[in-house]
């Protein structure tokens, strides 16, 4: 989507806005935490290091869970998986959604019909239940979970892109391009895509959060990968003790929230940088 030469200026543009700077700072922190998890907590996230239900900000920074596991260690290791799940799933969703939706919206005709039949097919299955079925059939491992999230989530984005492309296509400047004899691909990528990019970026940044929450939902139903510590796993596990130990759900919840917030702030900054017309 972004050419290499555009990157430095883009980054600078993002950092120049307060929202973008805050977002970048937050996301960098999460990424660093993920990278240095094994240095900070060499004993791993599953080790029962202390007494259960230690409140936070005492002996352990974020307290311990019902089995005496260090929640701070879980947050650090969970950052790895949550970022991975969010990033990979979103990447697949955005790629599939943009390609299918873009082609369908631009060309119309049988391509549109076929693409819309395929998206309708994926949409008709209730999203969450669809993912549960896929994970139940294939088994709860991380690649299966990411795959399931992507498979059930790409169709709405494709339809969104299609609708936008159709709307943009109807505008005067596209017709002007056509009359100038510009190629389809060129019009689609150079003229139309930038106009729908803001929608894709906003929807895409929300997808990251959805993917992370989705994983949490599956973990909560016992369909997470039990050998991997994720924030979803922690939220799911802490949920039953929500009245006894609020921090078990709240701290990983805040981790999800901050990550999502960071991605959204960056998304907003990106939106403004890419789409100057949104500025007034």
């Amino acid at each position: 989507m972004l050419s290499n030469s555009a990157k430095p200026t883009l980054l600078r543009k993002i950092l120049s806005t307060p929202t973008g700077a805050i977002g970048m700072a937050l996301l960098t922190t999460v990424i660093l935490l993920a990278l240095f998890a094994s240095v900070l907590f060499p004993e791993g996230p599953f080790e029962m290091v202390g007494a259960p239900f230690r409140p936070p900000f005492g002996e352990y920074l974020f307290g311990t869970d019902m089995l005496g596991r260090d929640i701070a260690a879980g947050i650090a290791y969970g950052a790895r998986i949550s970022l991975l799940v969010g990033a990979v799933a979103t990447l697949v969703i955005v790629l599939l959604g943009t390609v299918v939706g873009g082609l369908a919206g631009y060309y119309g005709g049988w391509i549109d019909t076929a693409a819309m039949r395929v998206t309708e097919f994926f949409q008709t299955i209730p999203t969450f239940i669809g993912a549960i079925v896929i994970v139940a059939v294939l088994g709860p491992t991380l690649p299966n979970i990411i795959g399931a999230i992507a498979v059930v989530s790409w169709a709405p984005l494709a339809r969104l892109v299609r609708a936008e492309v159709r709307s943009v296509k109807g505008r005067e400047f596209v017709e002007a391009c056509l009359s100038l004899g510009m190629g389809d691909m060129r019009i689609l990528v150079v003229q139309i895509l930038p106009n729908v990019l803001s929608t894709i970026v906003v929807a895409g940044s929300l997808m990251v959060a959805t993917a992370i929450l989705f994983e949490a939902g599956l973990s909560f139903l016992g369909l997470g990968d039990p050998n991997i510590m994720t924030w979803g796993f922690m939220i799911g596990a802490g949920r039953s003790a929500i009245r006894t130990a609020w921090w078990m759900v709240t701290i990983p919840g805040i981790a999800v929230l901050l990550t999502v917030l960071a991605i959204n702030l960056i998304g907003d900054a990106l939106n403004e940088a890419l789409n100057p017309r949104a500025k007034r």
């Binding site: 008709t124 209730p126 999203t127 969450f128 239940i129 993912a131 339809r159 609708a163 929608t199």
Partner: peptide, 30 residues
């Protein structure tokens, strides 16, 4: 775009309501 999203969210809502139905003991389809 909001209407498009709302339209495509119908099935998502049906799925997402599993959790809400479960939490609130709501006897629904999810």
């Amino acid at each position: 775009p909001v209407l498009t999203m709302a339209g495509v969210q119908v099935s998502a809502m049906l799925g997402g309501s599993v959790i809400i139905e479960s939490v609130f003991g709501w006897p629904g389809l999810g």
